[in-house]
Amino acid sequence: MKSRKQSVFPQNGVMEQTRYQVRFDWAAEGAHAIGSDADVIVWVDAITEPGADLDLSLLPSAPAVIRVDLPSAQAAAQWIIDLQVKLAKRILIAVVAAGSTRDGQLRVTTEDLLAAGAVIDHLAALGLDATSPEAAAAEAAYRGLARATSHLMTAVSTAATTAPENYQLKVDATLTPADVQVVRG
């Protein structure tokens, strides 16, 4: 008989968030932890740093992958709803914040946390609110700081090393699902 702890945590010690429709984690390792059984990986990169291309070979091979920044958060949420309708089933969504690296290690970035939270918030507004605690925390960060997002996006350390034309400061409600960058369909 498995103990309660063993039934919640897989052998590798990572909680997979499998009970939840909307999940959240960081970087390629997080994509594998929460996205191997997902229908779509939402790769969130709010400020794309020079030379920081998305390497699909580092992600689980099965799910669709869309690339999202802060402006496209609302459009991405609608794209996901449209996918769920098209597939005619409850889909699993892995929202993965890209983060950055520092000395070869993951650097959790405020801008990616806020943009991921914006996607999760818009999913909830459209009725997908079976979120993991991790996703709920990202959503709460965005909701709590939504009015300050523009300021935060210009003040984060990543913005100091990235040209302003490489990122936007707020959600763009004029974007549609057709504007979502589908990296793998």
Rank of each mutant, 00 (worst) to 15 (best):
T109H: 02
A31E: 05
S100W: 03
S61H: 14
L54R: 08
F24S: 07
D45K: 12
V180Y: 01
G13D: 03
H151D: 12
L106A: 08
A38I: 05
G185R: 13
S61R: 13
D39A: 09
K5H: 12
L113Q: 11
A97F: 08
V44Q: 00
Y142L: 00
I120F: 02
A160P: 10
A155L: 12
Y167P: 14
A141C: 15
V119N: 02
L175T: 07
T149E: 02
A46R: 10
W43Q: 02
E29A: 14
Q21K: 04
A116V: 07
A163W: 10
A64Y: 02
A73L: 01
Q6S: 14
A135V: 13
L70N: 06
A76W: 03
R102C: 06
K2C: 05
P63S: 10
A138Y: 03
R4H: 13
K5T: 14
A146H: 12
A141R: 10
T101F: 04
A124R: 13
Q181I: 14
E29F: 05
Q168A: 15
S7Y: 07
V95H: 03
Q21G: 09
A146K: 15
E16H: 10
L83T: 15
D129M: 04
S157R: 11
A64M: 05
S7A: 09
A75C: 10
R107H: 13
D172K: 07
E139R: 15
I80M: 01
T110I: 13
R67M: 08
L128Y: 12
D69C: 12
M15I: 14
V96P: 00
D121V: 07
S72H: 12
G30L: 03
S3W: 00
D112V: 09
H32V: 09
D53V: 11
S150N: 12
G104D: 02
A173C: 08
Y20R: 00
E49F: 03
P164L: 04
V85F: 08
L58I: 01
G104C: 05
R143E: 06
G117E: 00
L145P: 14
H32A: 07
M153H: 06
G185F: 01
M15V: 12
D53R: 10
A135T: 10
S36E: 15
V22G: 06
G30F: 08
A141D: 12
Y20D: 09
D172T: 15
V22Y: 02
A28N: 14
T154A: 04
A115F: 01
T176I: 02
D69H: 09
G13W: 01
S150E: 15
A118Q: 03
S157D: 15
R102A: 10
L56V: 15
A97H: 11
I34A: 02
P133R: 02
E29W: 05
L87G: 10
A73F: 00
A173R: 01
D112F: 04
A135E: 00
A125E: 08
A130P: 08
V182H: 01
D103V: 08
